[in-house]
Design a protein around this nucleic acid. Structure first.
Lengths: 197, 197
DNA sequence: TTGACAGCTTACCAAGTGGTAAGTTACCTT
DNA sequence: AAGGTAACTTACCACTTGGTAAGCTGTCAA
């Protein structure tokens, strides 16, 4: 039969490197050669596993989407309302560490060319919507209503997250940190308003 | 002395075309040749006026920044509180028409490589901050506090704006419109909370 | 032991990239 | 009328791009 294919860890390492680079400079800003160089392999190694650059990008986004979905599901295990609060609070508090993720999500929403007819972030957004729908507050609400409210919340959080580098550049590291702290404090209120009736 | 240089309208047209293309696919996704082709000139015409691709991108961002600053100033002419409400309401309501702008702003915040040490959107953000500072509510607040709150608001609005195409792709045009309307309604409350005491 | 196949590598390529050099043309000042 | 210069153009170039073709090597099933 088929052979022992034990390339999974290597492939995952390639995806990790690609993810970081795509998050930083976007699809067009990254070359296969650059990713290959950082991974210490030839670019044909990447093409061997992923076929084309677009498919590699797709695999990166799919992997991220799966990861985010799993996270949402894990958060929702202890009840929808508490889960949502915990999830969003976590997002807001670790904005520096989660920059790469947020950048990729935003880029996926932004780049309608490469990701069209694929919409990799749809499952993630729907997982959040479904979780919200399970709370008492949103049980009777329409999907549009939930989505509109949800976008307000994750939009605010991810916008700040992707702005971290720019904020440091514009105002310095101290001010960036002060803004982040103020933001985390005030978004907490918004999160509770979103979840609780 | 110097000669009558009447290339201003042509240059502005180039900037307009470049703006649309950069907004759509980002700095690396656009080639000078593509912009030149749409403008009906050779790419060396662009290089003649702007020197390099990076400088052209910089000029596009500078032009957008100036436009946004002028808009904020105009909105603030009739009082800071009312001006802010009108400005944000306008942003939220015309999200489809203002997609290109929002995309560029987000890309400018996202791309730390090309726009570093330039931060073209800083004047815009500061104009908004200054306007907010003039309202009774924020007069005694710290800059950090205002900025954090401001980012929450424009973040939510611009995030939805850049997501319009993705929303249509994911849920269809009808649902997209429904979400947008719900969003506009609910962000109105947030705007008033931001401005009023 | 052999042969298939995963997981690579080196060699190569056509198309496109941003950018330079050297004109050309029309207008404006002198 | 002459000269300068703005606003281009065509020609060209070194380099990079994503992608193909072919080959090499170690492991594992038969």
């Amino acid at each position: 039969m088929t052979q022992m294919t034990n390339a999974a860890p290597a492939v995952d390492r390639y995806l990790e490197i690609a993810e970081r680079q795509f998050a930083e400079t976007g699809f067009h800003g990254v070359s296969l050669a650059a990713i290959a160089k950082e991974a210490g392999v030839s670019k044909q190694a990447l093409l061997h596993f992923f076929g084309t650059k677009e498919k590699l990008y797709g695999a990166v986004l799919k992997r991220l989407s799966d990861k985010l979905c799993a996270e949402v599901e894990r958060a929702g295990a202890g009840g929808p309302a508490a889960g949502l609060v915990a999830y969003f609070e976590g997002l807001a508090k670790n904005s520096l560490e989660r920059q790469a993720e947020a950048r990729l999500v935003v880029r996926a929403l932004l780049d309608t060319e490469e990701t069209a007819r694929f919409w990799p972030m749809k499952p993630y957004l729907e997982a959040l919507t479904e979780l919200a729908r399970k709370t008492p507050k949103w049980q009777t609400a329409s999907l549009d209503e939930i989505r509109a409210e949800l976008f307000q919340l994750i939009g605010a959080i991810q916008y700040l997250t992707i702005s971290q580098t720019a904020l440091t550049g514009m105002y310095g590291e101290e001010d960036r940190q002060a803004i982040e702290e103020r933001f985390a404090g005030s978004i907490s209120g918004a999160i509770r308003v979103f979840v609780e009736a």
